[in-house]
Computed example of a mutant assay.
Amino acid sequence: MQIERLEIPDIWLVTPAKHGDARGFFSETFRADEFAKHGLTTPFIQDNHVRSTQKGVLRGLHFQTPPHAQGKLVRCTRGSILDVAVDIRTGSPSYGRHVAAELSADNWNQLWVPAGFAHGYLTLEDDCEVIYKVTDYYAPECDRGLAWDDPALGIEWGISAADVVLSDKDRKQPKLAEMLPAFDYIRQE
């Protein structure tokens, strides 16, 4: 398992090894001991599976506030997505910045998105499936979001507002400047 810290070091690109033969492949997609070597010991307590039937579906940018903040380990098992995480931790040196990675069934990459980041993804083709582990249960009272198209974020989604497929909830999310602070940055030594 390869773990690479991205431009915002709290976000990791994880590439599990795949061992294949004529029958198919085998892959350990998560190992607690490998994540612990990099400082992540928070247990995952829920798995989510999402299917999007068409290209251009954008889900996000979502997060949960304390006391039910969630870290997420995201992977795409069918199709491909552009996965994005935005730092929303007040006082962080990377506040308002984002990282993006393509996750696909072919490249087998995963993205670790800790609590304190808004997360979302865009389907890059029809019929995508995304599976992600989370570190806390879904709590509707803590469910929040951030506008996917906030110009202050500078995210290059590669799709026009006219072509994106959004939920009603995601059409109404606030911009970063309008959002109430939800997380404080805690410097890691």
Results as ranks from 00 to 15, higher is better:
residue 16 P to L: 05
residue 115 A to F: 00
residue 44 F to L: 01
residue 83 D to R: 05
residue 2 Q to P: 05
residue 10 D to E: 15
residue 143 D to R: 05
residue 27 S to N: 10
residue 154 G to D: 04
residue 179 M to K: 15
residue 55 K to A: 14
residue 181 P to S: 13
residue 160 S to L: 04
residue 160 S to E: 07
residue 58 L to P: 02
residue 38 H to E: 07
residue 99 V to K: 00
residue 99 V to D: 03
residue 71 G to W: 10
residue 119 H to Q: 06
residue 1 M to A: 10
residue 171 R to N: 04
residue 134 V to F: 00
residue 173 Q to M: 13
residue 112 W to D: 07
residue 134 V to S: 02
residue 1 M to R: 09
residue 71 G to D: 05
residue 180 L to T: 10
residue 56 G to T: 06
residue 44 F to R: 04
residue 149 D to Y: 08
residue 73 L to R: 04
residue 185 Y to P: 07
residue 150 D to F: 12
residue 32 A to N: 13
residue 103 L to N: 04
residue 53 T to R: 13
residue 116 G to K: 14
residue 178 E to G: 00
residue 137 Y to P: 02
residue 45 I to M: 09
residue 155 I to A: 01
residue 144 R to V: 00
residue 143 D to Y: 11
residue 28 E to S: 13
residue 185 Y to M: 03
residue 44 F to A: 06
residue 181 P to A: 08
residue 51 R to G: 00
residue 42 T to S: 05
residue 114 P to M: 06
residue 135 T to W: 01
residue 20 G to P: 04
residue 173 Q to L: 15
residue 163 D to I: 11
residue 120 G to K: 01
residue 80 S to N: 02
residue 47 D to R: 06
residue 109 N to W: 05
residue 184 D to N: 15
residue 143 D to I: 06
residue 77 T to N: 10
residue 7 E to K: 14
residue 113 V to M: 06
residue 56 G to I: 12
residue 87 D to F: 10
residue 43 P to M: 09
residue 93 P to D: 04
residue 72 K to I: 03
residue 158 G to S: 03
residue 112 W to L: 14
residue 9 P to K: 07
residue 2 Q to D: 09
residue 42 T to C: 01
residue 141 E to H: 14
residue 57 V to I: 09
residue 89 R to K: 13
residue 30 F to H: 15
residue 111 L to R: 08
residue 157 W to N: 12
residue 45 I to Q: 03
residue 122 L to Q: 09
residue 161 A to N: 05
residue 173 Q to I: 04
residue 3 I to A: 08
residue 165 V to I: 10
residue 100 A to Y: 01
residue 87 D to K: 08
residue 66 P to H: 02
residue 187 R to S: 12
residue 95 Y to E: 10
residue 5 R to G: 03
residue 182 A to P: 12
residue 106 D to L: 14
residue 151 P to R: 10
residue 112 W to I: 02
residue 10 D to P: 08
residue 131 I to H: 07
residue 151 P to E: 01
residue 64 Q to Y: 13
residue 29 T to F: 15
residue 95 Y to P: 03
residue 10 D to K: 13
residue 45 I to D: 03
residue 3 I to D: 03
residue 166 L to P: 13
residue 124 L to G: 07
residue 118 A to S: 11
residue 168 D to S: 02
residue 24 G to I: 03
residue 52 S to M: 06
residue 71 G to I: 01
residue 117 F to C: 01
residue 167 S to G: 11
residue 45 I to R: 01
residue 102 E to V: 15
